[in-house]
C-alpha cells in the first residue's frame, strides 16, 4: 500500500510538473521554485515533499515542485541541477549531496539571476541563503539534557557517532559532553565516540560489547539515524528496557516499535517537512526582492524567529529552532 501511494505520489508529481511546465511559456510571469533533494523515494525526502506540496497549495500562483536522483549520487544531483538551470527555473532550493560538487553550477546559476537556497550545507560558499533547522550545539545539549533527565542525572553513559569524520555528529556529542560536565557532575562518560557507520547491526554488536564491559551503564546518546535501532535492539534483547536510557537522532517510523517498548527513551530530529517549507519560504522572499532579517518569522513552525549569520561564502546562514524531541507519547504526530 505504502509503495503504491509512493508511486501515485510520483505520478502525481510528474503530472503536476508537466502541467506546471506547460503554461510556463504562456504565463511568463509565473515564478517557479524547484526543490532538489539528495535522493527521492526515501522516507526523509518523501516527508520533505509533503512540505513542498503544502507550500505549493498555499501559493497556487507559483510553480513549486520537488525532484531528486533515484540513488544517492552527487553526480546525478549535479546533472539535475544543471538541467533545471538550463530550463530557466527561477529559484532552486537544494539539499546538496556534496556541497563542493555543486559550487560551480550554483555560481553560474546565481550569475544568470537564479535564486539559490540550500539546506544541510552550512559550508556551501555559493548560495544566497543556507537554511539550517537548528544550532548543532543547542541540539546536542538538548539530547543530553533529555538523557540526563531519564538517568536521574547520574551514572555511566557513552556516545555513538556515525563516523569520527562526521562534523555534525561530533558537534552534537561534543555539546552533549559539555552539557553533562557543566550541569550533571555525577554523570560519568565512558568509552565515548563509538563509530557506528550508520549500520544498525554493527551498532548492535558494539552496544552489546559496551553493556558487557560496563554492566552498570545507564545511558546512550547516539547520532546517526540507525544508531537508535541498533542500541535499542541490544537493550531490548538484554532485558534492560527501562533500566538503560537511550536518546539519539532517529526517525519516528523506524523507531516506533522501540519507542513503544521503551527501549528508546526519546529520539531527536528535525522535521524535513518544515525544512522544505522554510527553504521555499526563503526562496519566495528572495524572488519578491526581499531579504531575510534576524528574528524574522518565516511562517513555518520552528522557523518563527530565525537567527541570521554570515554564511561560509557571501550568502546568509539562517538558523531556525526546528528541533523536535519525540518520545512514546508524542512521536505519532510526526510519522514519517
Amino acid at each position: 500500500m505504502k509503495k503504491l501511494s509512493v508511486h501515485i505520489g510520483l505520478v502525481t508529481a510528474l503530472m503536476v510538473s508537466a502541467v506546471a511546465f506547460a503554461p510556463e511559456a504562456a504565463l511568463a510571469q509565473e515564478k517557479s521554485i524547484t526543490t532538489v533533494v539528495k535522493i527521492s523515494g526515501i522516507p526523509w525526502f518523501d516527508r520533505m515533499k509533503t512540505g513542498v506540496e503544502k507550500f505549493a497549495n498555499e501559493n497556487p500562483d507559483m510553480a513549486i515542485t520537488q525532484v531528486g536522483p533515484a540513488t544517492a549520487d552527487s553526480a546525478q544531483q549535479l546533472q539535475i541541477v544543471q538541467d533545471l538551470v538550463a530550463k530557466g527555473t527561477d529559484a532552486l532550493a537544494v539539499v546538496p549531496m556534496d556541497p563542493s560538487i555543486l559550487e560551480g553550477i550554483f555560481k553560474r546559476a546565481m550569475d544568470r539571476g537564479t535564486i539559490v537556497v540550500t539546506h544541510e550545507a552550512d559550508n556551501q560558499k555559493n548560495t544566497m541563503v543556507d537554511v539550517e533547522a537548528f544550532d548543532n550545539d543547542a541540539y546536542g545539549a538538548a539530547l543530553n539534557e533529555r538523557l540526563a533527565e531519564c538517568m536521574g542525572g547520574k551514572g555511566k553513559w557513552t556516545t555513538f557517532v556515525g563516523s569520527l569524520g562526521s562534523r555534525t555528529h561530533m558537534q552534537w556529542v561534543g555539546a552533549g559532553e559539555e552539557n553533562a560536565k557543566s550541569k550533571h557532575a555525577d554523570m560519568e562518560l565512558v568509552d565515548p565516540n563509538n563509530e557506528s557507520f550508520d549500520d544498525a547491526n554493527a551498532t548492535y554488536e558494539k552496544a552489546k560489547e559496551i553493556l558487557r564491559k560496563h554492566p552498570d551503564i545507564k545511558g546512550f546518546q547516539t547520532s546517526a539515524g540507525n544508531d537508535v535501532l541498533g542500541v535499542g535492539r541490544a537493550i531490548e534483547e538484554a532485558g534492560l528496557t527501562g533500566k538503560v536510557c537511550l536518546v539519539g537522532t532517529g526517525l519516528p517510523n523506524p523507531s516506533a516499535a522501540y519507542l513503544d517498548s521503551g527501549a528508546i527513551t526519546a529520539i531527536g530530529f528535525w522535521d524535513p517537512q518544515k525544512a522544505g517549507m522554510a527553504m521555499n519560504a526563503v526562496a519566495k522572499l528572495l524572488l519578491e526582492g526581499k531579504s531575510v532579517e534576524d528574528g524574522m518569522d518565516l511562517g513555518v513552525p520552528g522557523y518563527e524567529k530565525v537567527s541570521v549569520k554570515q554564511g561560509a561564502g557571501k550568502g546568509q546562514l539562517v538558523i531556525g529552532n526546528g528541533m523536535v524531541l519525540a518520545d512514546k507519547d508524542n512521536y505519532k504526530e510526526y510519522l514519517f
Partner: peptide, 11 residues
Amino acid sequence: NVLVLVGIPST
C-alpha cells in the same frame, strides 16, 4: 569485538 573491552579509544 574486543577493542572497546580492552579500552582502545575509537580513534
